[in-house]
């Protein structure tokens, strides 16, 4: 009987031995309030890029420009992104960003609503224009917007000109509106995601910024086997670089000078090349008149 007791004791002690604990190095229960993030002593220049492409794509593409501006201005430059064009416009209106790369319709809305000012516009292939291209999956039989009736359509941003206003205009030309014409629509909030949605078959069609489409095709040539263009709009004035109404004129002039002079600077050329731009040019509000006309012929957009 004593042997059995000893045997059981050994087993119990073995069971007990398996969970030894070391001295903890972190006390999860000992919590203290986080310090509030200190205001930066040097106020950075804040640059916003409207969500033409996804936030990661934007951050990757515009980082060299941010660094270039920082070195030219000799002050920190911060990239501020928001999900929608409307949010970017609000930042500009409130003066929370200094300059912004915005979509054409966002510019028109900002200009008309609160006096958004044109700074410069990029030139691509020597033209400051772009197109809205209607794309479908590569194996789709559709040849025009009319063939996409009853299909799933991907819009980019609710107020994007090339991604929402123009396709809605095309549907209006067919005497319909998107909610009736398409079986279903959804927002991708960026043009590269709209291309992916079509390429992966999530959507039967989408209208995207030609600059983004060409850039995407250049980065990933296999896209040519996944999507094809069935319609290309007439040329529209390119999405501009803008400032809010409160910007100091001196800063505006300095920024304009830096951006316009980039093509004469080897460093600036590299940055422009990475962005897919030839250079920056000045542009007048009149260049956007055709877009205002299209907007006038398009039924009001539901948010």
């Amino acid at each position: 009987m004593r042997q059995i007791c000893v045997f059981l004791l050994i087993i119990l002690s073995l069971l007990g031995c398996t969970s030894t604990q070391d001295q903890p190095s972190v006390y999860l229960s000992d919590r203290s309030p986080l310090p509030t993030i200190q205001d930066q002593t040097v106020v950075p220049l804040r640059v916003s890029v409207a969500a033409v492409i996804s936030p990661q794509g934007t951050a990757e593409s515009y980082q060299p420009l941010i660094e270039y501006l920082s070195s030219k201005l000799n002050r920190p430059v911060e990239l501020v992104q928001r999900r929608t064009y409307a949010e970017t416009n609000q930042l500009l209106q409130a003066g929370k960003v200094d300059i912004a790369f915005v979509c054409t319709s966002a510019y028109i809305a900002g200009h008309d609503d609160f006096g958004m000012e044109l700074l410069v516009a990029p030139q691509v292939k020597t033209e400051a224009v772009y197109y809205s291209v209607l794309i479908v999956p590569f194996d789709s039989p559709a040849e025009s917007m009319a063939d996409l009736k009853g299909k799933v359509f991907a819009f980019t941003d609710p107020i994007s000109f090339s991604g929402r206003v123009y396709p809605t205009y095309l549907v209006a030309q067919l005497d319909s509106d998107p909610s009736d014409f398409f079986e279903r629509t959804f927002f991708t909030y960026s043009h590269d995601n709209a291309i992916k949605a079509v390429a992966e078959g999530l959507a039967d069609g989408a209208a995207v910024d030609s600059l983004v489409y060409d850039f995407a095709l250049q980065n990933d040539p296999t896209l040519a086997q996944q999507v094809r263009v069935i319609h290309r709009s007439s040329a529209f004035a390119i999405p501009p670089v803008v400032t809010g109404p409160q910007i100091r004129p001196q800063l505006k002039a300095t920024l304009q000078e830096i951006l316009l002079g980039m093509d004469n600077d080897p460093e600036g050329q590299k940055v422009l090349q990475l962005l897919g731009f030839d250079d920056f040019v000045t542009i007048e509000d009149a260049a956007y008149q055709p877009i205002r006309e299209i907007l006038a012929n398009t039924p009001p957009l539901t948010p």
Binding site: S25, V26, Y27, S29, D30, R31, S32, P33, L34
Partner: peptide, 19 residues
């Protein structure tokens, strides 16, 4: 090294960031 968001609710454990 600033905590942007966390799940602890009230306060944040000391030494955890550096761990």
């Amino acid at each position: 090294n600033q905590v942007l968001a966390h799940t602890f609710g009230d306060g944040f454990p000391q030494d955890l960031i550096a761990a």
